[in-house]
Design a protein around this nucleic acid. Structure first.
Lengths: 329, 329
DNA sequence: TTGTAGGCGTTATCAA
DNA sequence: TTGATAACGCCTACAA
């Protein structure tokens, strides 16, 4: 394993010159060549550990998410990793299985790994995680009340309001919403939007159509089944995340009902399932790539010591595709 | 940011003693106490970067997978991370989007990050990745011909043979298989098992029932649709991975067919969808946790310089649940 | 533009 | 059992 000294010796210059060359400082053309040759000859690669020790930057970012198996986070992680890498950073991804205690533990773990920053998609929206560190932290998806911090959020209320308004405009009034737990900021906001849309239309909300569970497929399946099997089943359903949407699709199909005819469905997130079905699902698409970009951009700003923490709010998009029936008289 | 020197000064001992204490060397009870106190007082945490530079071990393992969005790999990553962490290692996960070129690039990237080892789920089963490095590499899922290396595989041929034999024993002879690309070792093996089962039963294979595409939901959906819409549709289908299974389920349901009655289906991998349906899907379950454990155990052995590289073959399990109809006369 | 020298925080060696 | 010291590989004043 060659090091700079070795390269310098072979190239006939000092280690400092090699280091400078490697870091973009101008070097005599002749030296450039001999250094390049020596590097090739020795198969030299910079030792990032030594560099980190010296520069106090590890080039890694801790990425902490509730559960790698949730489709939304899987995609988000994938995008964030890519965006980070464009800036020369790599991610250490940790999954805390939606367990707040484990979440705290993993934060310690990541800080011990000398990450330069943390990106956290919190589940515990009341906690004060990583409060005592001075590495920059960007929070994703969920909002936490308290000190000013960096949040990258989507306008959940508006997104679901738009979806529900669309359903209302198509003549639906018995509209179910399959939601996550009320402890989650996103679930609360999405419910708020649901109410808002009814309000705007001058309609009353019927509480039997509001279902709150967890954000996974099983919950989506069970709650949708409940609604469909009730006395006055909804004519339309809003599923508030990708896994719930998958569960809802299965529940509907299992009853021999046709989506977009017997039951209208608006899903969340642009998952494969939405594209693969006939008709395709009308969906609320969270701009995952934009979220990733905003996250990494904000992070880079903080890492270079710029700006004040704040909330970045992105818009989701309602993509009309055909799973909503027009039942206007 | 306190360091060992600082702790040593406060505790009234030398830095060497503190270091030894931290690394499990016996220290006088009295010193132990004062060091502990100093650590607490200064909020000291070992600088892992400096430690790495000195010990030449980074404590990180590169984990390279084709696509984080494939359910099987998502779960695998999740398990491997956990297993690694139990041994004090953390993973840097890279997704190369099933692109062999990107795969090579990411290997370089990870090696530059000074990973102590690599775990690779290759897509390019003919390449010689990371061939020039001396960090241990464990290959997952796919077999690559060539020099002896460490592979953690499941007995794919046997798994699919067992599934198909089960279908045959239930009276099915028109059995479709929705497979991945023939460039993949796993797909080839699974097809081999399909042939083997027919062979054992003294039946001829009808090529029209063999469909090969990619390992994603879309392909699963499309190829299953083709089979179901053909002149003599199969009475049973084997879907050879989790995403294909999901696609197959959707295709079947969309045609108003009942799984386990009109069409029998054997899926792959223990995904939520299999548990959530009624009837539950009969599935081939890959022992993801065992794979993770075997991987990490093998890795630890190589890291401590022990043993020779070799193939670890694990068995998948056929879990009978009710999606296969008994159509014997 | 180049080189010298010192230090980042830790561990390992060796002598006490 | 402890401590002084050197070294891991790199970067960065500073001086030349």
């Amino acid at each position: 394993m060659a090091n700079i000294k070795e390269v310098a010796r072979i190239a006939g210059v000092s280690a400092a010159t090699v280091s400078k060359y490697l870091n973009g400082v101008t070097v005599k053309e002749k030296n450039k060549e001999s250094i390049d040759r020596a590097i090739k000859e020795t198969n030299f690669r910079v030792n990032t550990i030594a560099r980190s020790l010296r520069t106090n930057r590890s080039g890694t970012v801790g990425l902490l998410i509730p559960d790698l198996r949730f489709a939304f986070f899987t995609e988000l992680v994938s995008e964030i990793e890519n965006a980070l890498e464009e800036h020369g950073y790599s991610a250490i991804v940790c999954d805390y299985r939606s367990d707040p205690e484990l979440e705290e533990k993993k934060i310690r773990f990541l800080l011990d790994k000398q990450v330069d920053a943390l990106i956290i998609a919190p589940v515990n929206t009341s906690a004060d995680e990583g409060g005592d560190t001075d590495v920059p932290i960007i929070y994703l998806d969920q909002f936490i009340d308290g000190k000013p911090r960096d949040f990258i959020l989507i306008d959940n209320a508006r997104a679901s309001a738009e979806a529900v308004s669309h359903l209302i405009s198509m003549g639906h009034t018995r509209i179910g919403i399959i939601n996550g737990p009320m402890s989650a900021y996103t679930a609360r906001e999405r419910l708020k939007g649901y109410y808002g849309a009814f309000c705007d239309a001058g309609l009353n909300v019927d509480l039997q159509y509001i279902k709150s569970g967890t954000f996974d497929m099983h919950s989506g399946y069970a709650l949708t089944s409940e609604l469909l099997d009730s006395e006055a089943p909804p004519t339309a359903i809003l599923a508030t995340n990708s896994d719930i949407t998958t569960g809802a699709v299965i529940a509907v199909k299992e009853r021999g009902l046709t989506i977009g005819k017997d039951v209208s469905l608006v899903g969340f997130d642009n998952l494969e399932i939405a594209r693969v079905l006939t008709p395709k699902l009308t969906i609320v698409v969270q701009p995952i790539e934009k979220i990733a970009r905003a996250t990494v951009m904000t992070l880079m700003k903080r890492l270079s010591g710029g700006g004040e923490p704040g909330v970045t709010m992105l818009e989701a998009e309602l993509v009309l595709q055909g799973s909503v029936a027009d039942i206007r008289q």
